[in-house]
Amino acid sequence: MPEIITQDGTIKQDDWVLVSRPEEGESLQLPEKQPALIPMDIWLADPHAIVHKPGLGIWLESHDEPERLEGMVNDLPLIAVNFPKFSDGRGYSIGRLLRERLGYRNELRAVGDVLLDQLQFMKRCGFDSYALRPDKDINKAARCLNFFSQSYQAATDTDIPLFRRRAG
């Protein structure tokens, strides 16, 4: 079972399966016994058509527009955002939009090229679970999630920027 890091740095086992986009002419293949994450646009095409007993969530590519999920986000128990390359920073904006604009309250997971040194940025942008790339040392995640004890700006984790805390 894959290991997932949570926001406080602990490691949990979970069996969500990320289902990739079907090739042309093929249909979506859902796992039988495990909960599944499917591409956002497939789910959006007809959110009620796909019923999956073990559970159903979605995943977004970094160029996907989270605004398309307006009003529906909390129907989903888990949303994942793919970082195709760690240097592709679009996922950070997607995380903040899902949380701060669309009011998403359930689990938000970073998947793809997820490395240690970006974890704290992800946490600040609303991600609360992380599928670390398997070759990275999962035991170092807790430290990397907490390099900084405070920050200058507001983000998802705090809406009070330092200039307002200084005033208090």
Binding site: G89, Y92, S93, Q118, F121, F148, S151, Y152, Q153
Partner: peptide, 8 residues
């Protein structure tokens, strides 16, 4: 400085 959304 270390803006989490705009580091990449």
């Amino acid at each position: 400085t270390y803006h989490p959304e705009f580091a990449f």
